[in-house]
Design a protein around this nucleic acid. Sequence first.
DNA 1: CAATTGACTCAGC
DNA 2: AGCTGAGCCAATT
Length: 99
Amino acid sequence: MHELLRTVPAGAVTTYGDLAGALGARSVARQVGYALAALPEGTDVPWHRVVDGRGLVTRPGSANAKRQCKLLRSEGVTVGRDGRVAEFASRRYALVWRA
DNA sequence: CAATTGACTCAGC
DNA sequence: AGCTGAGCCAATT
């Protein structure tokens, strides 16, 4: 899954559901997030490019949320005050799971 | 081993 | 258009 996430280019974003769907089961979106939560700090996986199904940055109150927003903006992604990704539909990356 | 929880999502109001 | 409720599957306790 991390590899699939690694295929997401900078400036693009993806959703838990899409990620899960690309893996085979759309219903495991939660577990995708769960897996990301277990991700170590020094990971090369762009976990910050993952948002929820509506282009909203999840986990309210978390310090990581701010970091994610900043990272996204540094990659050219505009994030609204409420964590909404601008032009999310267009920035949404077409995930392709390599069999 | 069974119950609860959770970085989600869809359908209703 | 935004909030609430119910559904979903795996990990934790």
